[in-house]
Design a protein around this nucleic acid. Structure first.
Length: 549
RNA sequence: GGCCUGUUGGAGAAGAGGCUUAACUCAUAUCCCUUUCAAGGAUACAUUCAUGGGUUCGAAUCCCGUACAGGUCACCA
């Protein structure tokens, strides 16, 4: 009769099962007291999901504020679902949001001493741990095929017992070792399952950093730890990796709560200390009156790419997510007049337990705040970066004259209440269009929206006079006085009280006069401050626009 | 279906047995400011904390039941 060791050697020949040897390669980290090691570990199966960004942000902030380490690990054990290039994409997007991993997988090579940081490259490491479990009798060889499993499940459902591969239903759990040896040698394919000693009539519990004490059924499922393809399942990879990499806090979505007992069991049976867990609420969306998880397929805002496409500054998205993560962030930001995340201390205690609805209005609000605080060359550069991929026409306008563009977007920002009229870069082109003569010509061709109560000749005459006698200096008061003077000559009433007393006696009030000027200059009844607009357009362009044909 | 988690206004939420006439922020509405718009300022917006019961002098806060919502039960993560 072969021994457990013989079987282990047969299944994983030449693999060193010594945990001590394994751990010697990944020594305990020497970090300051209180420093947290966190990680973001996505599967490279597509683009960055908003929820993943949320998770990554929290891990990042946790590591940064505790002077710890933030790791980027690629969980590519599902070879069928892995999408080529997705890993790079994920990392790049993370970095665009300023979430730069201290350690982890990078296209140019691993950074850090706890790699490889790509699970498909760690197969040997998992095998060592599996072999250890095999020898200890805490794992076993299972020959059940998917069809066998289905049959077992059907039988269980028929007799109304809990479905799954566990206890007496775990067919190959206690297979005689000589039979195992014979079948393996015979070339039968198999997986390695964990031999759970749990009892689902019993409870286990753990303390979640966000939710506190959670009590749930103990696990008794003999979960697969090594798949037929020789790669581990998530559960096993999580345990091995997070132990070896020295992760102190595992923050992940709340969908992992039910499998935490498995992980805890695995840690215990490996003789390792489990990390602390923080199960994050999922970001939801209201759909026909029902809350549901943001769906990549149905909701554009579920993909981080959407925010990039719309031109939300990364900072704004981060600030918004932080306000969702910590309810006191908003108050803090108002009190401290700062949206600088690195100055804010994140805490799990201030995290809400149920999934927040994604609120685009609030994102827009934060984004306006963020954008109103950005100006000058840095802003132009950021917009340019965005326009390069998303708006060739805007890019062309910027490149025509960056300084002019800069003045146009920074209009009314040098005041205590800076102008906040765009929330995202995609709003900008429309709001600055009138500064550009070619765009203005298009507006003019469609007809300028002058107030219908004035006839063309009157408007033309008034504007021409204005263009000649307006004060073009930097003093707004002087300019306005000059405008009023011309307006008075043309029959506008300059004192509103008098106008209101007898409107019929005048052409209109000062506001009407300014309205005509505004339309002539900006092509719209609404615009930023006219004096500043004139300053940016410059004398010649203003004269040209005030000269109607 | 079993198990887990959650439920305070349109949205994010504060709240830990009396200091809550339920804070704060976004949204919305009205008004003010103003040469328009944006911004800014002011005001309004939950007789009540999913619901039924209980404990208590006193409950959004503690306990039990119910409803609803989300998650999970893969050789996917």
């Amino acid at each position: 009769m072969p021994s457990l060791l013989d079987i282990a050697e047969l299944v994983l020949p030449g693999v060193d099962p010594s945990l001590e040897h394994l751990e010697a390669i990944y020594p305990k980290r020497t970090l300051e007291a209180g420093a947290e090691v966190t990680r973001f570990a996505p599967s490279p199966t597509g683009f960055l999901h908003t929820g993943s960004l949320f998770t990554a942000l929290i891990g990042y902030v946790l590591a940064k504020q505790s002077k710890g380490v933030f790791i980027f690990r690629v969980e590519d054990t599902d070879t069928k679902r892995t999408i080529k290039g997705s890993d790079v994409e994920l990392l790049e997007q993370l970095i665009k949001f300023g979430i730069v991993p201290d350690e982890g997988w990078f296209p140019e090579g691993d950074k850090g001493n706890y790699g490889p940081y790509r699970q498909s490259l760690r197969a040997d490491i998992y095998k060592r741990a599996v072999k250890h479990l095999l020898i200890e009798g805490k794992a076993y060889v299972d020959f059940a095929t998917p069809e066998d499993l289905l049959k077992i499940k059907e039988a269980q459902e028929a007799s109304k017992v809990l479905p799954g591969y566990y206890g007496v239903y775990a067919r190959d759990r206690n297979l005689p070792l000589d039979e195992v040896e014979r079948r393996v040698k015979n070339g039968e394919s198999y997986v390695i399952r964990y031999k759970s000693m749990g009892d689902h009539n019993l409870k286990t519990s753990f303390d979640d950093l966000i939710r506190g004490h959670i009590e749930l059924q103990d696990n008794d499922m003999d979960i697969v730890i090594l798949k037929r393809d020789g790669l581990p399942t998530y559960h096993f990879a999580h345990v091995v990796d997070d132990h070896l990499m020295g992760t102190t806090i595992v923050n992940r979505g709340e969908e992992w709560i039910p499998s935490t007992p498995v992980h805890l069991q695995l840690f215990r049976d490996m003789g390792w200390e489990a990390p602390r867990y923080a199960h994050l609420p999922v970001i939801m969306k209201l759909d026909h009156g029902n809350k549901r998880k943001l769906s990549k397929r149905k909701d554009p805002e579920a993909s981080v790419g959407y925010f990039q496409e719309m031109g939300y500054p990364p900072e704004a998205v981060k600030v918004y997510l932080m306000s969702v993560a910590n309810s006191n962030f908003e108050e803090w930001s108002i009190e401290n007049q700062s949206l600088d995340l690195s100055k804010f201390t994140f805490s799990f205690g201030k995290m809400s337990l149920d999934g927040a609805l994604f609120d685009i209005d609030k994102l827009n609000y934060f984004s306006r705040e963020v954008l109103s605080q950005m100006k000058g060359l840095p802003l132009v550069e950021e917009i340019k970066d965005w326009a390069k991929t998303y708006s060739p026409s805007l890019l062309e306008k910027i490149e025509r004259d960056p300084a002019y563009f800069s003045k146009a977007i920074d209009i009314e920002k040098e005041r205590s209440n800076p102008r906040k009229d765009y929330a995202k870069f995609s709003d900008i082109e429309a709001s600055v269009a009138f500064f550009y003569d070619d765009e203005f010509a298009k507006m003019k061709a469609k007809g300028l929206p002058f107030d219908g109560k004035y006839d063309r000749a009157f408007i033309k005459d008034f504007l021409l006079d204005l263009s000649k006698n307006m004060d073009y200096g930097p003093d707004e008061g002087a300019w306005w006085n000059s405008v009023k003077e011309v307006a008075g000559k043309h029959g506008f009433c300059l004192v509103n009280k008098e106008y209101k007393a007898d409107p019929a006696a005048y052409k209109g009030n000062a506001a009407d006069a300014a309205g005509i000027l505004r339309v002539a200059l900006t092509g719209s009844k609404n615009s930023p401050n006219l004096h500043e607009v004139i300053g940016i357009l410059g004398h010649d362009r203003v004269v040209a626009r005030l000269t109607l044909d």
